[in-house]
């Protein structure tokens, strides 16, 4: 067995600073944090400041990748500046809250309820009960990974084998997380329902949801689903 461990101490951790800044590639750094919302706020602050030579800032859970253009930036100086960067106080940039209308008629709703020993309506009310924090966008452009699901909704594994076609707008859960498919794709998450809204559009670079934002799921009926189809979030 090969033991691996994380080195820390490459910068002075301070309040609302990264706990470590380590190389991701020779021209990108990974800033690590102790919790998700601090990572999201720090990433938002870095984007806001729009440093010259920083070409992308990607937040996922407790890590933030900072991609730099080695033609225009001194990488050692950048690392030092990243180590000093402080996220704003909690509350300054808590992220937006998005209301996601959901028609809970998903193909996995009944089976999910059975596996959890619940009624389908209990699954619906549990899923909509609390807002979820967005930790990352990935898998598909604009797919939000959000959580955490609370017991007794949490803990179900993905479907095996995954579906070859999950429709755009599907609202689904897996493990401790919930997400929304922005486009049709293969996928293994358990589909509880569907939103009529367009939550991301690659062609027009429309990505209204960002890590650090919150999602609140609101049950709707078929009439409202039809009426709001293709509306943008």
């Amino acid at each position: 067995m090969i033991g691996i461990g994380h080195k820390t101490g490459s910068c002075t951790p301070g309040p609302r600073r990264a706990s470590a800044i380590i190389p991701l590639t020779e021209a990108a750094f990974l800033a690590r944090f102790d919790e998700e919302s601090l990572a999201a706020r720090w990433a938002a602050e870095l984007r806001e400041q729009a440093w010259a030579g920083v070409v992308d800032v990607v937040a996922a859970y407790r890590d933030v990748a900072v991609f730099a253009d080695p033609e225009t930036v001194n990488l050692d100086a950048l690392k030092r500046e990243l180590a000093q960067l402080q996220a704003p106080e909690r509350g300054d940039t808590l992220g937006r809250t998005h209301e996601i209308p959901v028609l809970y008629d998903g193909p996995d709703l009944v089976e999910t309820a059975q596996l959890l020993g619940l009624e389908p309506r209990e699954v619906v009310s549990l899923h909509g009960a609390a807002p979820y924090r967005v930790f990352a966008l990935g898998f598909l452009p604009g797919f939000p990974y959000a959580g955490w699901l609370r017991a007794p909704l949490a803990g179900l594994p993905r479907r095996e084998p995954p579906r070859t076609r999950v429709p755009a707008g599907s609202v689904a859960i897996a493990g401790r997380q919930t997400g929304i498919y922005p486009a049709r794709s293969p996928g293994g998450w358990r589909i509880l329902g569907r939103t009529p809204l367009v939550i991301a559009d690659l062609a027009t670079a429309y990505f209204p949801i960002a890590p650090g934002d919150q999602l609140r799921f609101v049950p709707i009926d078929v009439q409202e689903y039809e009426a709001r189809r293709h509306e943008r979030l």
Partner: peptide, 18 residues
């Protein structure tokens, strides 16, 4: 195979080609 001790609670993290 070179088995690796791994962190079972590892969260997803950004990656890049390569």
């Amino acid at each position: 195979a070179f088995p690796l001790m791994r962190d079972p609670a590892r969260l997803s993290s950004p990656v890049a080609p390569g």
